[in-house]
């Protein structure tokens, strides 16, 4: 379980995270929605340990993996990218399988820097999904993907959760991803939680006027 309490983060006097209490259960996929600058990325970076909060705490046990918003292609082929920090011999079959599942197998020997934005984003996700973890943090994992790419990412995340039973927190700008992938959804506004519930419920019956207006804009 991930426990977040009284979490505060400010940039130059502007409060970007102000979360009183947020618990995410084991095996749960939580979608974090919100406008630009609402604190989604900051929340994920603090949870991953890449950034320190000004106050409050995040409690998460086990191995945490984090996919940043900007996907990076390391030198070498797609296979090389997947095997960074792993034993190549043990993982050979898994590498092929995971690249196949993301429809990247035909590019496996190509240089990763030659990939398109959507392909690179799928590769970045593959690099994480080849490792087991207890908490997977994804910062807009489908922002560069087309409809097919989005579908592949959603399926891969769901399968990974089924296999490893891990918790997922995913920032997203896509209502489709939230609806198809998440068990629960929160909407952030100025760093605070404006709505919290099952995605269909939050999207169809937002709890506040602000959330209603956000969902309306979001869907269009």
């Amino acid at each position: 379980m991930v426990k977040i309490e009284n979490l505060v983060k400010e940039y130059s006097g502007r409060r970007v995270i102000d979360i009183k209490n947020l618990n995410v259960n084991d095996g749960e996929i939580l979608a974090v929605a919100g406008a630009n600058g609402s604190g989604k990325t900051t929340l994920l970076r603090i949870t991953s340990g890449l950034m320190k909060a000004d106050s409050g705490f995040v409690e998460a046990q086990g191995k945490i993996l984090f996919m940043p918003q900007q996907s990076y292609a390391f030198r070498g082929s797609l296979k090389d990218n997947l095997l960074i920090g792993l034993n190549g011999k043990d993982k050979k079959g898994e590498v092929e399988e995971i690249l196949e599942s993301m429809e990247l197998k035909h590019l496996s020997d190509k240089k990763a820097v030659s990939l398109s934005g959507g392909e690179l984003q799928r590769l970045a996700l593959c690099r994480l999904l080849i490792r087991p973890c207890s908490l997977l943090l994804l910062d807009e994992p489908t922002s560069s993907c087309d409809a097919r790419g989005t579908e592949l990412v959603v399926d891969a995340v769901k399968k990974y959760v089924e296999k490893h039973g891990c918790t997922v927190i995913m920032a997203t700008h896509s209502p489709i991803v939230a609806a198809k992938c998440a068990d629960r959804m929160i909407i952030l506004n100025d760093g605070g939680i404006e709505a919290d519930g099952e995605p269909g419920e939050v999207m169809n019956d937002p709890s506040s006027e602000w959330a209603k207006s956000f969902i309306k804009d979001w869907r269009t």
């Binding site: 991953s48 984090f66 900007q70 990076y72 920090g85």
Partner: peptide
């Protein structure tokens, strides 16, 4: 981005 990606992959400080 390299540091964030590597740390996000759970790699050690040395790696």
């Amino acid at each position: 981005p390299v540091i964030d990606t590597a740390k996000g992959m759970g790699l050690s400080g040395r790696k």
